[in-house]
Design a protein around this nucleic acid. Structure first.
Lengths: 340, 340
DNA sequence: TTTCAACACGAAAACGTTTTCGAAACACAA
DNA sequence: TTGTGTTTCGAAAACGTTTTCGTGTTGAAA
């Protein structure tokens, strides 16, 4: 087991100073052709690689960014990581992944731990609990220390920083309008509790679409649920007690569950009920019938987020402070769960 | 924007030495109660946090482990990360995620980059290309440098290290036997190209089950495909040209695709054809009908892998060298795609 | 007063780099 | 010989810690 070789060891072996070795390896003109060759040959022979930690300490840069997400199991977040990782790698950065598990405390602990030098910046999507508490002090603190933060998807207006979002209201509006255009009027909404920012916004879009088509918003058709609880019964009630023609669900899980329950109670999709989901994942794609979905390109979001963060990290003029919010286009992917 | 405060700054401000500050914060008895209090109060006021990088350099430990996986989009790998992350966090470790994209080169580059001090150890699942090339020098090299590696799922016998696997042969055997027990004989197998270790093993299990029930292995019923290519047509041919009673697919994607195609050509599931998949993910769970699956607990695998790695990192007596291979239990999750 | 221990603190090394600055050695011109 | 410039290299600081060891001060015992 050969341990890693250091500059000091090379220097000793070759009977030169550490500085000489360092300069030789970096091809400094200060060093004679002769010694440069000698040192480089030796370094190659022993497979010398500079120690990253030492470099980080010296440069005050770790070339590592951290992404904090609520759950990696959600396909959407996995795709975001994928996007982040690719762009980060292209730019010589590594990606540290932290899961908040939708917990405020874990989010805080993770940020505080890593803010102490371990990483250069954060990319994050807020945990539910954080959105509920509306306590963002940990983020403010990190930003005040001069560490850039990029938020995506679940963001908040209370923090000033770069953001990547989709236009949730608009996307939900379009999806609802799509259903209305098919001649459907009794459109149910399955959404999350209001404190989840995106759930709220998508609900707004849904209502807006109804109103602009002079359809009354019937609160009985709006089901607000936690996706942690066992919500099958609620959906079943919703479907049984109302003559619903279509369902708009704010995420994939709600959509597919609605589909299964509709099947169970003898409703045919899309003949009896049309369904549109949100977040284009594998469930929607492979379900039978496959589900029409508002596609939210996670890879693109992740990539853009990484790019924004790295740009900020590498812009020398520290104080530009021009925070940007980028809106990613969504797209309605038409599949089998809606009538044509 | 207040920058991070260091020991040196505190020392200067309080007119004591750096050593005194450090010792005070660590509650050393060398320092008088008085100064300790003073220093700690000051540190708290300025929210002092030791710099992780400096600590890493000093301790030669980064408290970071890296997991290298082929693709994060695959639900199974996402669950493994989840397992790794939780156990790592509990033990004060952070997790760096690298994606090889099934590419040998990316795998090599990532390992070489990170082996230079950035992390304490690796958890990895081989890329397809690496398995195909059978070139593992990068892994050997890392291990020779004294950095522990734990492999999971896609492993190789050519490397000596800790491993976490499932008994692929046995699990496939059981799944096939399950179908046979239902009275089904014409059982098709949809598997991967042989160089993917797990595909090969599952194929072996399938054949073994047939043989021990005196059923001839019909190579026409065995479809070997790359999951990168567009394989729908192959499956359709398979189903059309043979009077198949059941399908065993070595992964989720193959299973659900087979299901959709069977549907398309008018076969009913499970009345006409039973289907069993592998890797219990959300697709199997939410597909209609839901798919009976060999469940491979990714969270557990990840957790075990992390535990093994950390145990090895923290066992002082360097040279135990007793590499272990742990086998995770699989379970057949019965759902709607198989007759009862 | 001397001696010794206990106490409280600081200097410095170490981790592995990069970089600035100074200096030795040499060549060449005046 | 002296002065000047160039080439080549090394010492040391810096990044932020922890820890070993030394040292000065104090108080008490002899």
């Amino acid at each position: 087991m050969k341990r890693k070789v250091t500059l000091k060891q090379i220097a000793k072996e070759l009977d030169v100073s550490i500085s000489t070795v360092s300069k030789s390896l970096r091809n400094s003109l200060e060093i004679s052709e002769d010694t440069r060759q000698k040192v480089q040959a030796f370094a190659k022979l022993y497979n010398y690689k500079p120690n990253n930690i030492a470099l980080s300490l010296k440069n005050k840069k770790t070339k590592t960014i951290c992404i904090i997400i609520p759950e990696i199991i959600h396909h959407f977040f996995a795709t975001v990581i994928s996007g982040v990782e690719h762009v980060a790698n292209e730019n010589g950065y590594n990606v540290l992944v932290c899961l908040s598990d939708e917990s405020f405390d874990k989010e805080v602990i993770n940020m505080e731990m890593l803010a102490s030098g371990s990483i250069d910046g954060f990319i994050m999507s807020l945990s539910k609990e954080t959105q509920q508490k509306k306590d963002f002090h940990h983020i403010t603190e990190v930003i005040n220390q001069g560490m850039p933060v990029v938020m995506f998807d679940r963001v908040t207006n209370e923090i000033l920083c770069d953001k990547i979002i989709i236009d949730d209201v608009h996307a939900a509006y379009n999806a609802t309008q799509f259903l209305i255009d098919k001649g459907l009027k009794k459109i149910a909404l399955i959404t999350t509790i209001d404190y989840v920012s995106v759930g709220k916004l998508r609900t707004d879009g849904y209502k807006k679409a109804l109103k602009s088509n002079d359809i009354d918003v019937n609160e009985n058709l709006i089901l607000k649920i936690e996706d942690t609880e066992d919500f099958d019964n609620y959906i079943e009630e919703l479907l049984l007690n109302n003559e619903i023609e279509a369902i708009f669900a704010v995420n994939e899980l709600f959509a597919v569950t609605a589909l299964k329950i509709a099947n169970k109670i003898g409703k045919r999709i899309p003949e009896d009920i049309s369904i549109i989901g949100f977040t284009d994942g594998i469930i929607s794609k492979y379900s039978t019938p496959s589900i029409t979905t508002v596609s939210q390109n996670g890879i693109k979001m992740g990539g853009k987020a990484a790019k924004m963060l790295i740009d900020r990290l590498e812009s020398e003029d520290e104080e530009e402070e021009q925070y940007k919010t980028e809106v990613i286009e969504t797209e309605l992917v038409e599949r089998e769960s809606t009538k044509s």
